[in-house]
Design a binder for these strands. Structure first.
Lengths: 161, 161, 161, 161
DNA sequence: CATGAATGAGTCTTCATTCAT
DNA sequence: TATGAATGAAGACTCATTCAT
């Protein structure tokens, strides 16, 4: 808490004015990060282009984003001990299924348009998200010699024939 | 240390008989995990089949493995604070590049046999590993409702059009 | 640290608010003690009297002082294991040579006045301080039956003829 | 105990075969050191010379001796915390009074022979021993630039007018 | 709102001691 | 005798949290 406070330029005492406890602060951060992710995905519906073009755009945006602290926060929260129960519940609620649901219309349109390979829709979207997630994790590991694969390559997972 | 010791059914004092410090214990675990991973990858060269069949086998083995504690240990070590410097060095040394190097001959043979799509070999292997890594992370998150994608789906990344 | 804190009537946690570590606390004490000793010696120049009278006064003051915790702290720091390097450096810097230098003018004046025996000045002062040091050590050993020698006796070491 | 054992080239387990506890080992060392000191003093009666010559010899022997570990052990035991009660008792029994008693005949002979200044005999011997003790402490502090005063200088304390 | 002195539960680590072999 | 695996009490240190100011 002291480190966070000093990073924020205030006393740790003041932090307790805004957040009752470290857990509450953490839970709030998790909530923000989750909401942030949902926003990012929802915006893809507002850009022009065919479904596959939209997915390509989303993919490259995510892979190029240089602040994945939101993503990493969730990742850590998911895999660490000592995470407050409520944070875990929030993450589960917004879990990969929620994001799958969010993106399914886009992928479905892609299949309908013949741009995206046929097959179980949920599995396809889940796989796509898993892959993105894996790439972001690697990207975050400040290995300067690692360059994430190009979005184009990933689209082979989806592209029809 | 006390938790680890009691989990192991010994006193924490005894832990210090075998490991000079928590850091040393952790570093040892990282080393074991790394070696374990290297072993797993190397064994794929000993099974029969075409390169793509081997890759398919490797993929499904990894995705079905139910103990990914090794993998998660490395993942955590990579992305957490307070990890001993030497552990970080070990991880960097054996980093994704090392595993790319280890698998490149297999993928190259796949390309030569026309089973695997042409293109930058390193990028292809790195992408494949990133994807696997992402899937394992998700799998580890004890979400019982999550079923990892079938290996077959992943191979679309590689398979020659 | 807990003992010190409770002796001081505070929690051990608070001690770490003021001193980063036990070593730092110890080093601070050593510094204070050293400075204290330097002060004590320097004040002798401000009292009236002949050089030998001043030395006699200094001697009896030191031998009568009933708090030699400063002195004992230094003594222990000098002869014990596990003393922080910086404490050792401080003690060496202010070592007996420093105190010899501090007192030399006084003794020189005594020789000039014919009150103090001729001979190597440094050796004389060093011997005088060694003797004082030895007496203080003994005095500190809470042996109630031990009475330190009178200053008068010590002055025989110095007095001319 | 482990350090002592390994210094002695045996296992720490074996140490407990010979000494029931660390305290017992420590007490034994204190006893040995005390006995050693008594021996050293008693031998001075066997050398030829006048009393003052004997004292001069004793003094220079002590100041030249390069192993004062016995002396330092006692010194530490006297001034440290956590020293077993019995060790403290032994030290008190053999305390400076005991050594004063041991040396008194020698000094008395010196006074009778007119070599040593008149005055309270106990005080004179005690002062002499205090001074020696102080010099030994300083000598032990591995300050290579410190040279103890010559025995000759010390004898001024005693020598008759 | 804002600060930081103060607290204490919890964690890593050391080390004297025991005991099966 | 001799070893070293095993134990646990004790001590240094951290950090979330409280509260007087």
């Amino acid at each position: 808490m002291s480190m966070i406070a000093s990073e924020a330029g205030v006393s740790h005492g003041l932090l307790y004015h805004y957040f009752k406890s470290k857990d509450e602060l953490f839970i709030t951060l998790v909530q923000w990060s989750m909401e942030e992710a949902r926003q990012a995905f929802s915006e893809i519906y507002n850009v022009p282009g065919t479904p596959l073009e939209k997915i390509a755009l989303l993919t490259s945006m995510i892979l190029q984003e240089d602040d994945n602290s939101h993503f990493m926060l969730i990742q850590q929260a998911r895999t660490s001990d000592g995470v407050p129960e409520e944070a875990k519940r929030i993450i589960e609620n917004y879990s990969i299924h929620a994001f799958v649901d969010q993106l399914m219309p886009l992928f479905e349109a892609g299949q309908d348009a013949g741009e995206i390979a046929a097959g179980d829709l949920r599995e396809l979207v889940a796989c796509y998200l898993s892959v993105l997630s894996g790439l972001m994790t690697l990207k975050s590991q400040e290995d300067p010699s690692y360059t994430p694969p190009k979005a184009e390559l990933l689209l082979r997972l989806l592209r029809n024939g």
